[in-house]
Design a protein around this nucleic acid. Structure first.
Length: 722
RNA sequence: GCGCGAUUAGCUCAGUGGUAGAGCGCGUCGUUGACAUCGACGAGGCCAGAAGUUCGAUCCUUCUAUCGCGCACCA
């Protein structure tokens, strides 16, 4: 037995060596893979955010995707696993803001160019770290094709898509009410909102003859109408008339309008209309444009009361510049003093929209932004983005794992609203739109003529990553798009189904006419043993690289895949990883035993399988079949679990134990040679089957297993035939 | 309000139209060679509740309860 086969198994001495061999072989690249490989199998790696280290969730996707890729590579497919990194616009901006804060700096005081350069360096550093971490986890991806979302060629493709959308009337700029985070000083799309339940006072206030209910007392200065339901008899005589009201700034007149939006059963059946600061009121105004004044903003970008439009009202001074909650409190007191407050319900429960990153209550504001139309048809004819996606799924061109995600997907697609893709941050792809007085030009370069200025906003990061499958394959050239698109599987977490998957389907189909992938496999989120989401603040994170270092990558991979069903959250604990480290050791020791007894290939004509041994081989075949079937059906947890049990509790416990006495016979006897042959057959098959799951240890063992013919890396060996 | 799940051994979860399985944990026993990161044996479950379909339901249908999640609305 080779001296390197010491016990126990030491991953640290094996893993780096194995990865080096694979990488140097060039076989990660489908162009170099041996044999006649014509059938492609492609996975585009979800590009990790280049703003930190890999976490356990990344380790899950690496494991699952690497299993698929290694399996299909061994089955002789032309496998491409294309790695990448995401600049992750807003997310990285938030991370970088915190870093700046620690240094006593502030992004709003740094010139655009300088900030961008600093962030580019920051992400470049993280990217290098991440690449090495992916290697450490055994990812057999094609590094020669790696892409970054800010690569020149990718940006070019994103620009082209935007221009096409613009020409089709599907990308448009409009002043609409959008979600504004007063902390981050940018708008967010509708999927970046987190709704939280809150208890707030509900104020019943007097507007002349009408009493109405509101939470947002401070927006009162921006009221432009009072609305009631058209069927509400109580207010029938007031509709269409102006009523005299008393405000904190003095007397005023306001019109009563009728709109279906008003629920006569809520409150008093009358609402104040504040189009500048409420999405519904904004819509009411759009419907009643000719009857009532337009939006009157009274809250600024920092969430402070801004009454600069009320200079003719001296009382405005008192409230101008106050924060929202301060103003609300003071106004409450003042209105009570002036007898304008009818009553206060202090325990009103409602939900408010908050920033998903910082929890700040989002302030609806009217801003000119770029939107992608979800439900409108392109000018030149054809289907809306939404219909393109719905159709692809309905027709079964795209399948979901688990299947129930399809329903969730469809439900979401039905409720789609236009997508705001403008972000008021520096970090990202600047929107290629140019303005001059009333003119707008969309294109990469500044148009001819004087006084053009470019939009200072950048794209929502998901706008560019929504094009990732085709953008990467177009950017790597070499006919890759033609060969590898549509890709086979998109494997990612269910938490970004709407953020990312839906957008890729829409933009992929729109831009290329083809779906971006055939199967969407959604893995669960990793939780700790108390079912808690892992987060740095809770201190319950399991660092995958630390675990790999301590227990070996292969054991970690087994722990990540077993019990991991699509769409179900997976519970990972250190004990579980330790359990599969033990399995790696078991595989190692069984291999020591085999190598000890089967140093040379058995003598062929001395092999005679008894009925019992034939049954054993039959069992092996069954296992082989089962594992293959599970892998084909994306049931990785079953495949891994099947192998674990078969190897340990059948092969090691039963077969090896049974063969021990035969192996004690003299060399050259039928007993011994038959036992050797059986052992070799089992071991060879199982090591191959285990390879996608535990690539390092199996590759190392493979080096020492006696075999006939050409010696190849296990990575490119043939998958055992059924 | 609309929608999607879950409920099986102490814990984490598989599973099947013919009255149940694994891992971990627990208990007892066992080390001169593949492996104590091990092996042998064992305890432990009216498969959430009710009704229906069926010769037969943990599995299919309906309802109920509890828990979780998503979307929308909220003056």
């Amino acid at each position: 037995m080779p001296s390197e086969f010491d016990k126990p198994y030491d991953p640290k001495s094996v893993e780096p060596e194995m990865y080096k061999k694979w990488e140097e072989s060039g076989f990660f690249n489908p162009d170099n893979s041996p044999g006649k490989r014509t059938k492609p199998f492609t996975i585009i790696m979800p590009p990790p955010n280049a703003n930190g280290s890999l976490h356990i969730g990344h380790a899950v996707f690496v494991t699952l995707q690497d299993i698929m890729i290694r399996f299909e590579r061994m089955r002789g497919k032309k496998t491409l696993w294309l790695p990448g990194a995401d600049h992750a616009g807003f997310e990285t901006q938030v991370v970088f803001d915190k870093k700046l804060e620690k240094e006593g700096r502030n992004r709003f005081k740094i010139p655009r160019e300088k900030l961008y350069r600093e962030m580019l360096n920051f992400t470049a550093e993280n990217k290098t770290v991440m690449e090495n971490q992916l290697r450490k986890l055994g990812a057999s991806c094609d590094w020669s094709r790696e892409k970054f979302t800010l690569d020149k060629d990718i940006i070019e493709i994103v620009y082209n898509t935007f221009k096409k959308l613009y020409n089709d009337g599907l990308a448009y700029r409009d002043s609409k009410i959008v979600n504004w985070c007063t902390k981050h000083q940018t708008t967010l799309s509708d999927v970046e909102i987190k709704y939280v339940e809150r208890k707030d006072p509900l104020y019943y206030i007097k507007y002349g003859p009408v009493t109405l209910a509101t939470v947002r007392l401070e927006t009162k200065f921006g009221d432009t109408a009072v609305a009631v339901n058209p069927k509400d008899k109580r207010y029938k005589d007031l509709v269409g008339k102006e009523i005299e009201i008393q405000t904190l700034l003095g007397p005023a007149k306001i019109k009563v309008i009728a709109d279906e939006m008003v629920d006569p059963k809520f409150g008093t059946g009358a609402v104040k209309v504040t189009p500048a600061h409420d999405p519904n009121d904004f819509e009411v105004w759009r419907r009643h444009k000719n009857e009532i004044p337009g939006p009157r903003p009274v809250i600024d970008q920092y969430g402070r009361i801004d009454l600069s439009g009320f200079s003719n009202r001296p009382a405005a001074q008192k409230y101008h510049g106050l924060k929202i909650l301060e103003a609300r409190k003071i106004m409450e007191e003042d209105m009570q003093k002036e007898g304008l407050m009818v009553k206060i319900d202090p325990d009103y429960m409602h939900t408010v929209a908050t920033c998903y990153k910082c929890g700040t209550i989002l302030e609806p504001r009217i801003l000119p932004q770029w939107f992608i139309a979800m439900t409108a048809k392109p000018k030149g004819g054809g289907k809306s983005l939404r219909d393109l996606a719905i159709e692809a799924v309905k027709k079964g061109e795209i399948k979901f794992m688990p299947q129930r995600m399809e329903k969730i997907f469809m439900h979401w697609m039905k409720n789609l609203r236009d997508w705001n893709i403008s972000r008021q941050i520096v970090w990202g792809i600047q929107i290629p739109a140019w303005y001059r007085s009333e003119e707008t030009y969309v294109g990469k370069d500044k148009p001819a003529g004087e006084n053009w200025t470019q939009d200072t906003d950048v794209f929502d990061t998901w706008f560019s990553s929504g094009q990732w499958p085709f953008a990467t394959l177009m950017a790597t050239g070499k006919n890759d798009f033609k060969t590898f698109y549509p890709t086979n599987v998109l494997e990612t977490g269910w938490d970004i189904l709407f953020f990312w998957v839906a957008r890729m389907i829409m933009l992929g189909k729109y831009s290329t006419g083809k779906i971006p992938f055939k199967t969407v496999y959604l893995h669960g989120l990793v939780r700790d043993k108390d079912r808690q989401k892992m987060s740095k603040s809770k201190g319950n994170v399991i660092d995958p690289l630390g675990m790999a270092e301590q227990y070996g990558t292969d054991g970690l991979r087994m722990a990540l895949v077993i019990g991991n069903l699509p769409g179900n959250d997976v519970i990972i604990s250190e004990e579980k990883i330790r359990g599969y480290r033990n399995f790696a050791n078991k595989v190692w020791n069984a291999s020591r035993f085999v190598l000890m007894h089967v140093a040379k290939a058995p003598i062929k004509n001395k092999i005679k399988y008894s009925k019992q041994k034939k049954q054993m081989l039959e069992k092996l075949k069954e296992c082989n079949k089962k594992v293959t079937k599970h892998l084909e059906e994306y049931k990785f947890h079953h495949a891994a679990d099947t192998l674990y049990h078969f190897f340990w509790h059948y092969y090691a416990d039963k077969v090896i134990e049974h063969l021990k006495k035969d192996l004690d016979s003299e060399d050259g006897t039928v007993e011994k040679e038959t036992a050797k042959a059986l052992l070799l057959k089992f071991h060879t098959t199982l090591i191959k089957l285990l390879h996608p799951f535990m690539p390092h240890i199996t590759e190392k063992i493979w080096e020492h297993i006696p075999k006939e013919g050409e010696k190849k890396l296990l990575m490119i060996e043939e998958w055992p035939k059924l």
